[in-house]
């Protein structure tokens, strides 16, 4: 019989972090107001997209076209349901697959050139997707956009989950989606893939000379991000029951990026989650302010302040770790050794 040693320094922060998550799961019990739940549901969409961005960033690449994959997922699902008459579930699944395939194709062509060039190419790609969506009238209905239906009810014996009646089913669907994404990303980060991704960003020349084929891992990260971002986009379209070319453009890609960075990319899951939820909620409340322009002003200002005043190279999530180090009175990570050995 093995006695498991419990490290309270790890366990207590986890328990404290679990409390808000538990509260989140039970929110619909207390309130079913469309308003409150919508904010959380929509933040969930951005959480997934931000996680995808963080994953690509892990490999040292800086994608500025993540919203395009949301748009691809959204349009794929919308076209399949509206034009081809598929039902929701298969088209939702196909949205992720299509988005993933497009990411795979684009990635294997484009990831050859890295760094700033990759950012500009993905930015261009995002714009191309937007312009095409705007102009391919026959498929996308142009600027008017498509109106995808809500999911069909799920019948479990006598019990029926109806997506039209309230947003609660959407809420749990979203939580499930975020949970699955988090689990997959967490597992990737923990496996050998995580270390390999990290080595690409940390020093690609060294990594290459250790036998790591850069393209392979960049494409893997890009594709995995593409798949989940596609799911998020499809969900977004079906939840809002509309998708237009203007919903997911360059500015949304930029927001995804900001959410990831502000949350902190030292962790693949928690950072983007915290960043996306906080910034989305902030953004929603700011947009209710009466003066036009103050929303953008405060949003931009808040992000700049966070970046300037946080320790360099960290995000909000690192404050959490720092807090617990203070609580347990642990020393900082390391002290620089003295010059002589």
């Amino acid at each position: 019989m093995m006695i498991k040693y419990i490290d309270w320094k790890v366990t207590i922060p986890r328990i404290v972090a679990a409390v808000p998550i538990a509260i989140l799961v039970f929110i619909p019990v207390f309130s079913t107001s469309r308003d409150t739940l919508s904010i959380i549901i929509l933040s969930g969409v951005w959480v997934i997209a931000a996680m995808g961005f963080a994953m690509i960033l892990r490999t040292g690449q800086f994608s500025m076209g993540q919203a395009a994959f949301m748009a691809i997922g959204g349009y794929a699902s919308a076209i399949l349901t509206v034009k081809m008459g598929w039902s929701f579930w298969p088209s939702f699944f196909m949205a992720g697959v299509i988005s993933g395939i497009i990411a795979l194709i684009i990635g294997s062509v484009v990831l050859r050139v890295g760094n700033i060039y990759f950012s500009i190419i993905t930015l261009s790609f995002g714009e191309i997707v937007r312009i095409l969506a705007q102009n391919l009238e026959g498929i996308t209905h142009g600027a008017r956009g498509l109106i995808p239906p809500s999911p069909e009810p799920i019948v479990l014996g006598s019990f029926e989950i109806n997506f039209d009646a309230s947003v609660v089913p959407y809420y749990y669907f979203m939580i499930l989606l975020v949970a699955i994404t988090s689990l997959v990303f967490w597992q990737i980060n923990r496996s050998r893939l995580g270390g390999t991704f990290f080595s690409l960003a940390a020093n690609q020349i060294l990594a290459e000379h250790q036998g790591i084929y850069l393209m392979k891992y960049r494409v893997i990260a890009f594709t995995v991000a593409g798949i989940f971002t596609g799911f998020a986009g499809a969900f977004y379209a079906h939840f809002l029951e509309i998708i237009t070319p203007y919903m997911l453009g360059l500015w949304e890609s930029i927001q995804i990026m900001i959410m990831s960075i502000v949350g902190g990319v030292s962790s693949l899951v928690a950072g983007p989650l915290v960043g996306a939820v906080l910034l989305k909620v902030l953004s929603v409340y700011l947009s209710r302010l009466p003066v036009y322009g103050i929303h953008a002003l405060l949003f931009g200002g808040a992000v700049v302040l966070v970046l300037v005043f946080l320790p360099k190279g960290t995000g909000l999530i690192d404050l959490w770790k720092k807090f617990w180090r203070k609580v347990f009175n642990e020393p900082e990570w390391y002290e620089i050794p003295s010059i002589d050995e």
Partner: peptide, 16 residues
């Protein structure tokens, strides 16, 4: 990211 956030900041300030 900081300069991109400045886009929002400056555009917001200008619209106000």
């Amino acid at each position: 990211v900081a300069t991109i956030s400045l886009i929002f900041f400056f555009e917001g300030a200008a619209s106000m």
